[in-house]
Design a protein around this nucleic acid. Structure first.
Lengths: 110, 110
DNA sequence: TTGACATGCAACCGAATGGTTGCATATTGT
DNA sequence: ACAATATGCAACCATTCGGTTGCATGTCAA
């Protein structure tokens, strides 16, 4: 059962393959709803390049945005990455790794 | 605390970005220790192309291989993918998603 | 209204990527 | 020994990718 049938594995994996895009996701995770200009500051590339990255992330359904006046607000969509991560974990899991994960989770719960 | 400090996030993400390489991982997950020739059958590309993909997977520490006579046996290394998946889940997790993961884990513990 | 601000659009470019071909090398079985 | 098998190596090629430049459009504020 796949909660989001329209999700495109390949698009997501390829979107995540670029470090700049992962950084953009990180930024949005820390502060959601940022504008394009906001997302550009500190990145060593032009606004147009950032806009391209954001388009790729949007096509992979990893983010969405809405126009607000003359600005564009960006919002992260955490579902696809979690979907895929869960699926891959269940694919590759082994006893040893389950134990390792369990240990980590226990530590986190403290 | 990172159990495998030598792991290269970027290399792993980029290795996973290609569908052929994900398919190769799938195959090795189903049957570990396959030879290069074995991994080539059914794929719509030359042996040399497959070998290149396998090299990329190896550089990302996702697989390893050992020479056995005139053959090369390939073995999957599930640690990096699990590491990253776990890390990204913990990054992006939200109450709803935590609940989903917990459900899955509970099912596993039965 | 008009200038500054925020974004949109498209052509262009070099480098990386995914794939091929051709040939070399090493191992096995008869 | 030698032919078949299994892999290694390297040059080459088209396409994709990440990025730029230049300019157009839309919105806000004084």
């Amino acid at each position: 059962m796949v909660p989001y049938p329209e999700m495109n594995d390949d698009a997501v994996f390829r979107a995540l393959a670029d470090a700049s895009r992962r950084k953009l996701l990180d930024r949005l995770r820390r502060k959601n709803g940022q504008t394009l200009g906001e997302l550009c500051v500190g990145l060593e590339m032009t606004r147009q390049a950032v806009a391209k990255h954001l388009t790729i992330l949007k096509n992979a359904n990893l983010i969405s945005w809405k126009r607000e006046g003359r600005e564009r607000l960006h919002f992260i969509n955490p579902v696809p990455i979690n979907e895929i991560a869960e699926r891959w974990i269940s694919k590759f899991e082994q006893p040893r790794l389950q134990a390792l994960s369990k240990l980590r989770r226990n530590l986190e719960e403290e």
